[in-house]
Design a protein around this nucleic acid. Sequence first.
DNA 1: CGTGTTAAGATACAACATATCATTTTTGAA
DNA 2: TTCAAAAATGATATGTTGTATCTTAACACG
Lengths: 152, 152
Amino acid sequence: MGQHDHHEHHGDSLADAAQANLEKSGEKWTDTRAAIFDTLAGFSRPASAYDIAELVSTARGKRVAPNSVYRILDLFVANNLAMRVESANAYLANSHPGCEHDCIFLVCDTCGEATHVDDDSLSQQVRKVATAEGFKSIRPVIEVRGICQKCN
Amino acid sequence: MGQHDHHEHHGDSLADAAQANLEKSGEKWTDTRAAIFDTLAGFSRPASAYDIAELVSTARGKRVAPNSVYRILDLFVANNLAMRVESANAYLANSHPGCEHDCIFLVCDTCGEATHVDDDSLSQQVRKVATAEGFKSIRPVIEVRGICQKCN
DNA sequence: CGTGTTAAGATACAACATATCATTTTTGAA
DNA sequence: TTCAAAAATGATATGTTGTATCTTAACACG
């Protein structure tokens, strides 16, 4: 189905991979960025910028303002370390940074968990539809809201 | 490509069709609902609830509170008279009420215009991916952000 | 009529996001 | 090494989107 193998990272390994990717783009892996990445990666469901701000502030005993979190999340998204789930106004860490994909998010309306699937053939079709309408600089947003298996 | 013909409605004809559909579900076509529908249909791009509240308030010389607008928009979405564009936090009137489709929205990041495409084969594939993951009560969100032909 | 139901209004607040300017930290050249 | 420029973060304010709660108004029907 157009999928391929990924290197799924976890814990420190994931943070290391994220750091490597960010630095490869000439960006710095600062303490604040590391803390925000770790916190985001620690969530099992999409986290809002305010969720992250609160947790990071507590963890570091020092306030991190929401706007700083947004700045850093934007940087992460631009560098594929994280993705934004539009229908949830929230963010997820990318568990395989380095792989560029149009993701499909499946978001459970009951428990809030989001799983993420890659199906390149599907996303290519979406891109094709948009291209046929004359769109450029295409960024597909493919999400599914519903009730997940566990909540059924 | 899995599309089919639609009855595209305009102006009064569209409002009439919307009214018919809503009443078919046992809901009433009140003055407030009519005003909100007309205002929404008058927008050429996705309109926020606050946009609508402001215009309707002016048009009727009587304040309509945002929460009332949200209530009525929710009703419209539930009855397929309108759709929510998740990536824009905004709403569009459905120009062919009665047809049940999973829509694909193409939203221009420059001018804000949104065009809407139906491709049942594509949306069926999205549903299939979610079903394969054990999801139920599926509601696909398929949108594309980009730059439209006119803005290129 | 009066009474129960549905629709809409008033108000307050919660949640999400950005704009602006100040401060701190880092960097790199003199 | 020190100083100036640039980059990162912080403080603060405000704008935007969305919901909760309670009240009032409109309506339907015995």
